[in-house]
Write a protein that binds this DNA or RNA. Structure first.
Lengths: 328, 328
DNA sequence: AATATCAAGGTAAACGATTACTTAAAAAGG
DNA sequence: CCTTTTTAAGTAATCGTTTACCTTGATATT
């Protein structure tokens, strides 16, 4: 075990109170001589105060919980890194919880994190809206990122980008390129304001019919992309595909190529997220960038500022950016 | 704040000792009536014992620290997920620390984690060997994964795959395909047993000269791949490239294609790791799979079994597997 | 000179659990 | 009926900090 404050105090022949005050800068009533002595003893022994004891006493652990569906999905590590980078510089640790989008796991995560006395929570794409009342009632600072949930008036912060508008933009882009039959492959979502809405609006505005046979919705995964083009192309003629994210796009591209079709001359494809690997797909994927790293940073900053300085939570919309590459 | 054990005890009109015993199964001397009463009150109030208080008291926090270079590198999320999955089922939390391979950050991470009283540490590709004595002297259970360090006789566990042999295999593969001038692009490493050794041995065994002008070593990153082919191809003729990992391979492939060369007819390329995206590169990358998820699981299992049951640490070698795709 | 103020630091009670030790009553043994 | 053992539960110290409040001696004020 490492050295404790009591031992430092004994070595310096002062009380633990004095040591504590010096460490925490509450030292207006400590003489320079004592301060230096204690500090040098701390240095010599490379003493680090035990944060769990401190956490118990002050009821703040300088730890935040990050609950996300799956760190293995390449969109999330960027967010995670953003969170961790600002958390670290602000003296916070972050503990991760993968939920696989399962309600049960999500709840387990949260109560686990709560028992660890985390000072705050960041959710990314977390599941049940109905849980939010619980989370709120626990009274623990919370921010959601990239999650469509109504936080108005609540104590929950929110970081998001308007992916609905982004999808609107890219389907307009495809329409502008002359696409007549545009498919939509994405994850299922009950939300009215999700990406699907952007697709619908763009079609409608251009006087194009919305054809249910052209939409496939399942998960945000490569497999969904593959299954999506397989089921749609089995019966339909298509000259453009909007993918709910780049993972889906990667799957879709593979499946399209497998059918001997060329991208973009036969079918144009676009994704959203701009994950790191999108530029290495073949052809390099046209997509819209969500600033994942910045989202993570913004979320952590908002959360920790709230924890530390009681700064109010708010909603923050980050900008997306069209990344034109070679699939359109 | 959530409800405490004291409050539960008051509600049940027993002492906290009784509640604690019931929760922890040390209840041979508790009557059935009391047990049921307490349990039902716990249930009603969905009481969860505060793990930081418990941690302070028993000096075990059921938390492990995971220190890695960068979660953003697609090799690591898999390991992380493996760790987290077994940790979670065994009741442990895991806190992450990115070091960016900087000695200073690594040390900061470790002392931070130590102050959080983590019960164990998992290092992936961590830096300074000289630190290991420190880590050992802290006397905290540690396992290293995918890290070339001599743990013989120490209390440090180790999970690894013989990437040196893997590189040997793939350069043999390229030689078998008729390659005469094979470049090697990887990260710098001072270790004698690293991937570079496999490359050297394969060349030597086949009677091929080792030409310094064909090797470029920097980082495990896409940029290194790009810079590597740019500097090597500027002066050299090459018909095969061994890449230290798939990230490097992705960069190398891009740079090679940019020069108007075809893969694999002009230059054959192989990587190692088999990250998720390797099969979506163009052409799909031939590589050798490191079972990252399993490595994470194995590491967590060994660590936690040591923490919980004092099971001894050991070395575990996991198998790699050649993934033949279309770049050779 | 008596009192007030201040500097420098100490005391001890928290924080929320766990646990070695004690106690009281009941059951068993003689 | 008295002693011993067992059962059921309680007491209080402890883990390593922080912090409200106290003490002491010195200096300043009137």
């Amino acid at each position: 075990m490492s050295i404790t404050m009591k031992q430092i105090a004994d070595l310096a022949q002062v009380s633990t109170a004095t040591v504590s005050k010096i460490i925490n800068g509450r030292d207006e009533h400590i003489s320079q001589a004592t301060r230096e002595k204690v500090l040098s003893i701390i240095e010599e022994n490379s003493f680090q105060p035990n944060t769990v004891a401190k956490g118990l006493r002050v009821k703040k652990t300088s730890t935040i919980g990050f609950v996300l569906p799956d760190i293995t999905n390449p969109f999330f590590p960027e967010i995670a890194r953003g969170i961790e980078d600002v958390a670290n510089t602000m003296g916070f640790a972050v503990v991760f919880c993968n939920t696989d989008n399962e309600a049960k796991r999500e709840q387990a995560c949260v109560s686990f994190l709560q028992s660890k006395m985390v000072d705050g929570l960041i959710f990314t794409r977390s599941l049940r809206k109905s849980f939010f009342e619980n989370y709120l009632s626990m009274n623990i600072p919370t921010v959601v990122v990239d999650r469509d949930v109504d936080t108005a008036g609540s104590a929950i912060g929110k970081i998001y980008v308007d992916t609905r508008a982004a999808v609107y933009d890219i389907t307009k882009l495809l329409i502008g390129k002359g696409c007549k039959r545009i498919a939509f492959i994405s994850a299922m979502s009950t939300s009215l304001t999700d990406r699907y809405g952007g697709y619908c609006r763009a079609l409608e505005e251009s006087g194009m019919p919305l054809d249910e046979a052209l939409v496939y919705r399942e998960y945000y995964s490569v497999e969904t992309g593959i299954r999506g083009v397989e089921t749609i192309l089995a019966t339909q003629q298509v000259d453009g595909i909007i993918c709910g994210n780049d993972l889906i796009a990667a799957g879709a591209m593979q499946a399209v190529r497998q059918k001997g079709l060329n991208i973009p001359s036969d079918i144009r494809i676009v994704g959203v997220d701009n994950i790191y690997f999108s530029k290495f797909l073949y052809p390099p994927l046209t997509t819209v960038e969500q600033p994942a790293y910045e989202m993570g940073m913004a979320a952590a900053r908002m959360l920790i500022n709230n924890i530390l300085y009681k700064e109010p939570m708010f909603e923050q919309k980050l900008d997306y950016k069209l990344i034109l590459r070679e699939t359109v």
